[in-house]
């Protein structure tokens, strides 16, 4: 068991694939000579060479699209976007092309593409650079979408992503690259669609993913200091979603709060709340409560950004208001 950084876990997953499968290559902006905007691919160019570590121009639509084509042509591309906000420039390719090709062709064409991108707010990058479009892509049929919250999950999910036969959005919370966690030496994978019960508890189920798990960790600590036992669940996979794990927890605690660090309206947690009430209403002791970022663009100013970004105190206030805990 070693303690490694989140960025190193992703790097390890990529390196394993590069080492074992000659059809794996990585492309994106400044991933080679520069070493990657968040240093995930640092050193790869020297090790794997420029045929497999490809610095692209700033042409997201073209190189994401080319990744789709290369995947359809039998390769296993990993395409890095410097930010998930820049995915917008390539959205047509991702949605209309990558995720539709299998279906439109009656199953003839396969697009085993891993699309990686840092996501989320919290570092004062302002409206254009702080968004969380994994929540949009999670809604698109024909592709999967994951977002790890710790190095263990990042490596396990990356291994799975690199074996997937479908396009997959691998969203990496930018706030977490420098965080650490334990990763075993033995090989393991984390299947798609498996949520993780990070903490067991009886009184309330707290659900989030990615950077939201840091917020929930603090909330659960606070609750337990006051004698409330929270069950904390990390979705890990946004598409597909592991409803079995969520419903099992709901049946036990009868209360659910779902947290999104992205905007509250139209987010992941709206979908989860709808599904849980439909399938588990007999177990519910109250409303399914959502906490999320405010429905405004992301401001630059630190205090405004923190005002919008959901804080542990916001979650505690919501729990008090709705469940009196």
């Amino acid at each position: 068991m070693a303690v490694i950084l989140f960025r190193e876990a992703i790097k390890r997953g990529l390196a394993e694939a590069l080492d074992s499968n000659p059809n794996v290559f990585i492309m994106g902006e400044d991933i080679g000579e520069y070493g990657g905007a968040y240093a995930v691919t640092d050193g790869f160019l020297a090790k794997y060479g420029e045929d497999r570590i490809i610095d692209t121009p700033i042409s997201e639509a073209a190189f994401v699209g080319a990744g789709i084509g290369a995947a359809a042509g039998g390769l296993r591309p990993v395409v890095e976007l410097m930010s998930i906000s820049f995915a917008l420039v390539a959205f047509d390719q991702i949605v209309n092309m990558a995720s539709n090709l299998r279906y439109m062709s009656g199953g003839q064409i396969e697009v085993p593409l891993v699309l990686r991108a840092p996501t989320g707010a919290g570092v004062q990058l302002g409206a254009t650079h702080s968004q969380s479009f994994e929540t949009w892509l999670a809604e698109v049929p024909g592709m999967s979408c994951v977002c790890p919250s710790n190095p263990y999950d990042a490596l396990g999910l990356m291994r799975t992503a690199l074996k997937s036969k479908n396009p997959i959005m691998f969203a990496e919370p930018a706030l977490l690259y420098g965080t650490r966690g334990e990763v075993p030496d033995e090989y393991y994978e984390i299947p798609l669609g498996s949520a993780n019960v990070q903490r067991e508890g009886d009184d309330v189920t707290l659900i989030s993913y990615g950077a939201g798990m840091r917020v929930l960790g603090k909330v659960a600590d606070d609750l337990s200091a006051n004698g409330v036992s929270a069950e904390v669940i990390d979705l890990r996979s946004l598409s597909p979603i592991d409803y079995d794990t969520l419903l099992t927890s709901l049946e036990k605690t009868n209360r659910v709060l779902a947290l999104d660090t992205a905007r509250r309206t139209g987010g992941m947690m709206a979908e989860i709340a709808a599904e849980l009430q439909e399938r588990g209403s007999e177990w519910l002791d109250g409303p399914i409560v959502r906490v999320g970022a405010e429905d405004v663009p992301w401001p630059y100013s630190r205090n405004l950004e923190q005002e919008s970004y959901p804080q542990p105190a916001d979650v505690l206030t919501a729990l008090k208001k709705h469940f009196n805990i």
């Binding site: 700033i58 650079h129 405004l304």
Partner: peptide, 23 residues
């Protein structure tokens, strides 16, 4: 305080940004 370094604006001076998505 909403824009920051990458998003400077002054419409009165017809300075229409500061845009951070390349292109």
């Amino acid at each position: 305080g909403k824009g920051g370094s990458m998003h400077l604006f002054d419409a009165a001076k017809r300075f229409m940004g500061g845009h951070a998505i390349v292109g």
